[in-house]
């Protein structure tokens, strides 16, 4: 169960001079796609038994994400925080998560890692598959439906051109979409209980990772330029007084769009 902490999609987002996402606006929330992942994990645990651990990688305030996970019903929460992680690309983040999952596996077997379909901030969607490759387990990304029975996980997924059904033996990594379920709202009891549950904090050293494996040092891509997109100029807004369709057609033809 992976939760990544990202700035809320509704708020204005920015890239700093170093090309990293500015996360210090104090408005970070649980990535709403990760709520789908939590919901899927909670349902599978309710059906098949087992525990749900909410796991996140990110700066200090990323702990809010796993706290929300606890409020929704997760049994445990783990937050990997280390200054060296800042500036990681998707593969670097996957490395940290993979090390964290291995660390957790020492205490109890991890059968299934469930992630959201993509972090909304970078939307690279590389993470679930990279995580599975690093853990050397099967990946079943973009599940619109996920079922687990007899040690086998099965997903149905909708791609741009096709629908697929994939199946693999556990352990495995699954990512879910916003079609998968409707995340539950934490109730008062859950919120109160979450306050009493501890969050385990881990550093890179705890996971046996070097600072050079992650962060900007371990990244294979580098943002060399970032700028807000210029606002559109020469914009036209008209009220339909009976001929708007004709004016639209003329606009399209004049601009060689039709």
């Amino acid at each position: 169960m992976c939760v990544k902490h990202v700035p809320d999609i509704q708020s204005d987002r920015a890239l700093g001079a170093d090309g990293r996402v500015v996360r210090d606006g104090g408005d970070g929330t649980l990535n709403e796609l990760d709520e789908n992942a939590l919901e899927a994990a909670l349902v599978l645990a309710e059906e098949a038994g087992g525990e749900v651990v909410a796991l996140t990688v990110g700066p200090d305030d990323a702990v809010d994400a796993v706290r929300k996970g606890l409020a929704m019903g997760a049994d445990d929460a783990v937050h990997v925080v280390d200054d060296a992680i800042a500036g990681s690309d998707a593969i670097g983040t996957a490395r940290v998560l993979a090390a964290a999952v291995r660390h957790l596996s020492q205490e109890r077997p991890v059968d299934l890692v469930v992630t959201g379909m993509a972090g909304l901030d970078g939307l690279t969607s590389l993470l679930p598959t990279a995580l599975a490759a690093l853990l050397d387990v099967p990946a079943l990304p973009l599940a619109a439906e996920v079922t687990v029975a007899d040690g086998t996980v099965r997903v149905r997924r909708e791609l741009d051109q096709a629908t697929e059904v994939l199946e693999a033996t556990l352990p495995a990594v699954v990512s879910v979409t916003d079609q998968t379920n409707e995340p539950r709202y934490p109730n008062f009891k859950g919120i109160m209980a979450a306050r009493k549950k501890p969050v385990t904090t881990l550093t890179l050293a705890d996971l046996g990772l070097a600072a050079t494996d992650v962060g900007a040092a371990g990244a294979r891509t580098q943002v060399v330029e970032a700028a807000p997109r210029p606002t559109r100029e020469d914009r036209v807004l008209i009220n339909d007084t009976g001929d708007a369709g004709i004016r639209l057609a003329a606009y399209l033809v004049d601009n060689q769009l039709a």
């Binding site: 090309g19 891509t221 580098q222 970032a226 700028a227 807000p228 997109r229």
Partner: peptide
């Protein structure tokens, strides 16, 4: 809303 340019360093 933002445009970026990203160099591959590998």
């Amino acid at each position: 809303t933002w445009t970026t340019r990203c160099a591959v360093t590998a």
